[in-house]
Design a protein around this nucleic acid. Structure first.
Lengths: 200, 200, 200, 200
DNA sequence: AGATAAGCGAGACGGTACGTCTTGTCTTCTT
DNA sequence: AAGAAGACAAGACGTACCGTCTCGCTTATCT
């Protein structure tokens, strides 16, 4: 039944935004970001490579930084969306190992570029925190709380501290590159950290 | 053999580089960096504020990035030069607390700006590592090895891992600012990390 | 059939070049050139005075020299466009007198500045020749040939030589300023030169 | 009398000014001027090529323009110093032919560069007039007056006008290069000009 | 169907920073 | 004292990039 105009979305007048172009832009921006770095990519360069005008870019994003930021997270979306629901130290361990792997990958490098590139833009920095850091913290927090409930971790365990103790060293190596960020490191890190919070 | 001939620098010809101007430039650059941020400072602005010509700037530094980099470390030199020689867990603890304090200070903020600002310049990044990160690691390593020798820490302790476990979480909070980097955090971090490596 | 397809200029895409700004630039440049001289005018100065960005300047002109060159001829266009069609010695005389008057005027001074300012730029020098020197020669040649046909000048008269003999001394005084370039001089010059080519 | 030491020239203290260096500088400057053009030569370049410091250059010359100016005339001195004393139209003719030859030579080109290069410097322009233009005028004037006295030229001949009529067309072609400045032209020019002033 | 509204590519534009260059002066040590 | 070496201030030059604007065309909805 078509009904008397069941106005759900009151579709705006005028030519609709080309959704396909948006994807094209972000994909192109990601590639440029990956190949040339954050500062080396130019807004006009993105526009040209995506077959789009500069004006279109700035109609949807406020700045070059924002475009690259979005490009990064649009690309990471399928990678970052980990359904890692569950509980227990085994899962916590697996999660950390995966995170370490991600950071060491090409995608991780691109993300580091974005993180450093937007550092002076308060707004984007907060968004980065929310869309990446806090999201992962939340997942970790859930797993940790489950582990506490299961009696695997001491009841006095402070999830926030534990998270920082697990993530921090990974992050440290990731950004500074003073030492390799490999599986072995992640494993030893996990074991040593957990030792302090484990029951017995 | 002509004698020990303790390498006397054969003073270069011509008008000597104005050491005073150099200091003035770096000091000015530091202030601008502190007040405006990494990207917002311009090379000509530095020159003007320091009462120096642009050419002089680029005679001694290759780029704006390099100037700000040097400005940062020139300013930090007296702060970073910690004679923390000694041994024992007490010293290790004190060192970490001080580091945490430094990172949370205004100087720490400026350093974060430089760290993120130069991230895409391989050369400067390596220099940052050498002049800051590795230097601190060396101090920590010495203290840790002393502690092992004293029997305070297990003989199996891997200094590198321990350093990353202590520094990482600090660094994590410092750069991301998702949670406060205060004394309490540093203390709890230290206690929990050390727990895993302590004898008994 | 749509017609003989009278070449319609297929308006180029994109934002059209601001013709008004171009005029503004050239007019401003002319004024600066007149007031300060060729070397004393700066490209940024022109830009600023014309309310235009440096980039716009260099989008349309290759160098400062070219801008000033164009500015000069754009300004002279209405002055230089003399319809002096006709024939006979009277007209030739009038033409020379007018030329002398022009060279001695403020416009003439500006032109001298341009002529000397671009002397080392082969391309501009050739353009100067074509847009000024050769154009005037052509007019003179036509008048001279008419005069020959009318029997006022000997049939053996070499127009090129005659032109140089009339223009040269004017040019000589104009550029060097060793002696005044006034009407009396122009008249006497004309009379003496013509004497050699006149019939009888 | 104070002793043997018959102090005639009280030789000034300190290192004596190197007269030889002056020549070296001007010679070098001339070569650079010839090879690269007026604007393309830099003051430091001259200094370096002459094995002299910039300061030395500016101790004796006020500006780059002045150096090149001097360099030009120092080089031309032997060429320009023509003993053409004498009288009669034959000598006048020979003189004009020689002048034409000089202007068409490499030296002439260099001189054109200087003439145009210093056009905006009032002082140098006047010096150019005095050292070159007026000097030649004087010679020409003397020859012309002799010719009048000899009855070869009309007594009513205005030497100034005659000089401009002979020099102007040469100068015209020299600087603009719209037509060749060869011997044939000089001859025809001379014959036609003289025709108007010759007796009978 | 025509009017209206917005999206869009092309590319010019103002603003501003960059890093290089050149001129003429100044400072230090050497001859 | 004169000079070479070369650092310096001043400031112009031409390039690059950012984000905005203008133009004409296209794609949609609304009347």
């Amino acid at each position: 039944m078509k009904g008397p105009k069941t106005k759900i979305a009151p579709r705006p007048r005028g030519r609709p935004r080309s959704e396909q172009a948006q994807q094209e832009i972000l994909e192109t921006a990601y590639k440029l970001l990956r190949d040339k770095g954050f500062n080396a990519v130019g807004s006009h360069e993105i526009a040209k490579a995506a077959g789009v005008s500069s004006a279109t870019l700035y109609r949807w994003w406020k700045s070059k930084e924002e475009i690259l930021f979005d490009a990064c997270f649009e690309h990471m979306k399928p990678i970052l969306a980990i359904p890692e629901t569950g509980s227990g130290l085994t899962r916590l361990r697996r999660y950390i190992l995966r995170a370490s792997e991600f950071l060491a990958s090409e995608e991780g490098t691109v993300m580091a570029r974005v993180l450093t590139g937007i550092h002076e833009d308060q707004r984007l920095r907060r968004m980065f925190l929310e869309r990446y850091v806090n999201q992962r913290r939340q997942i970790l927090r859930a797993i940790i709380e489950d582990s506490i409930a299961l009696g695997e971790l001491k009841p006095t365990t402070d999830p926030e501290l534990l998270i920082d103790m697990l993530s921090g060293p990974l992050f440290f190596r990731w950004l500074q590159g003073h030492a390799p960020l490999d599986k072995g490191f992640a494993k030893r890190l996990f074991d040593n950290v957990i030792h302090a919070f484990q029951t017995q």
